[in-house]
Design a protein around this nucleic acid. Sequence first.
DNA 1: GGCGAGCCACAACGATCAGTTGTGCCCGCC
DNA 2: GGCGGGCACAACTGATCGTTGTGGCTCGCC
Lengths: 319, 319
Amino acid sequence: MDTEGLRSFVRAAELGQLQQAADELGVTQQAVSKRIAVLERELEVRLFTRTARGVELTLDGQAFLPHARSIVTGVERAVTAVRPGSRALRIDVLGLRSAQAVVLHDYWRSHPGTNLDVVTLKVNDPRVAVAAVEAGDIDASFRTVTDPATLPRDVQMIHAFDSPLELLVGPRHPLASARTLTPLHLRKHRIWVPGIAPRSEWAEFYDQLAADFDLRIDAAGPHFGDEVLLDTLADSADVATLVGARDRYIWPTNHDLRRIPIVNPTLAYPISLILPATNPHPGLRAIINHFGNLAPLPETTWRPFWATTPRRNDGDSAR
Amino acid sequence: MDTEGLRSFVRAAELGQLQQAADELGVTQQAVSKRIAVLERELEVRLFTRTARGVELTLDGQAFLPHARSIVTGVERAVTAVRPGSRALRIDVLGLRSAQAVVLHDYWRSHPGTNLDVVTLKVNDPRVAVAAVEAGDIDASFRTVTDPATLPRDVQMIHAFDSPLELLVGPRHPLASARTLTPLHLRKHRIWVPGIAPRSEWAEFYDQLAADFDLRIDAAGPHFGDEVLLDTLADSADVATLVGARDRYIWPTNHDLRRIPIVNPTLAYPISLILPATNPHPGLRAIINHFGNLAPLPETTWRPFWATTPRRNDGDSAR
DNA sequence: GGCGAGCCACAACGATCAGTTGTGCCCGCC
DNA sequence: GGCGGGCACAACTGATCGTTGTGGCTCGCC
């Protein structure tokens, strides 16, 4: 099916004449007539009744019209999503289940019609993200560089929001029945956080966390996928892991895992946003404002060093 | 833009290989490669990075994919909407602002995903609606035949719901400040209901209403459109009209019109549904059940004769 | 390092199709 | 009856689609 044919059909239905539709579309009347005929042959249905003064929708045509309209507008949206220069707001997230994606989804649901495209860089390296922002391939990235001094002049990083951590354990784990936990409760228990690249910001985060609270965090080892992780947790009586409270990890009900909030202090993973220092995409401002609507964390919240030292270009510069 | 190209793109993106996508789609790998190339040329953007083991989405490809998906599913929905035999539930209403359309819209919003097409027959004659139901062009019609005996054997009419009437007046009308009215209050006031075809069920309805309550209902004269009607009402100190309480007539705020409910007795226009007596569209049952959720009217409600005499095949036969 | 397997792109070809011009038909209107 | 507006059919041409054949590339294996 050809979308030009659909566009012709929609315009012809709206104008009631093939002739006018043809003029608008910059083709001959015969071409529009042919396009409609092709559409009708494809659908094995008559879309218009031809009259002396133009065309009129049949019942099938009436039923088809709204669908055709939505396809045509869908095509327009699809084109603007990638059209260089005038493309939709494009933001890089770590994964579609991450807290970042959840927050973006919340924003999008409360702002229907926003032209927002959520993508994930193939290379898991904040420097690549910075380069992509600098090059304009993406408008913003939810990644973190722990040393803001390494940012190019035309790229800035701002604090987006904090993601409080929760303990995720299986039913046989000794902490499984707790309603809340403090970091001190986690001592001596093995916390397994697979798939952390060495020297990444998560590696730094967990290193600091382990040092500050004397925890046993096992951040080495490969990650065989969420399924394996969840299966392991469900079966184990002594392994737990940490997840973001806003993450949307969906596990099958048969896993019977528990999420237990950690308080006194709350442990926050700071989510940053990398964006151009000058002329960011206009749609970004509303999203950054949206971060302010998220439930704030307690004053006592623990954060890694790079979120407690002053950040370059924080806050106002993006508004 | 060709929707087959979009379908190929979607499948290739999902499978990560043009080859596999080609096999599934029943064409050669080269054809899929070409389709993608055409798409890329059209969008002036690279959608895939080609690797030795297949293809991988670029950022632009990631941004484009969900849009392409929605277009492809839109095409499928559009086709099933008109495909004879397996088409969407198609219901004829008097107009998109009528109470019937509002109730259908309510239903559709509370049952997302329902394949529902709302159409309007061009010829405003219940006999045409009956014929269309009989022929299978539509699955049901919100029209009324005042004499059920005229229905063919394989077509039935059931009572759908009642639409209580309200008075619609401009600010200068003497009844404009009333909060509710009884039919007796309407005596001596001119009620203008344009566009009523002689001998139609509305003509009968208003004739009976005028006779039973001694009202002055002017149901003759052509209808020049809702805009003219609303303009006239807004300016006039002595003309009023009747509208259904569930209708969704949207008027510009500058019209400053008032809707005044009529009670003691409530005046109900009965909305009927014409549908096949045997094997109605399976989706109809849920809609008919939905009518039961509407707020019931008082026992004392006034109705025209054809709604107070026993109706053929009422109620259970449709369940 | 060489080689085969798997995958994608380019080339050439035939069939089909889209759009153009020219023309005829139909209907409503003067 | 003649005219005007609008749509459909016919014939033609250039573009396009899908096919077969082929080459280049990368990875993994011996």
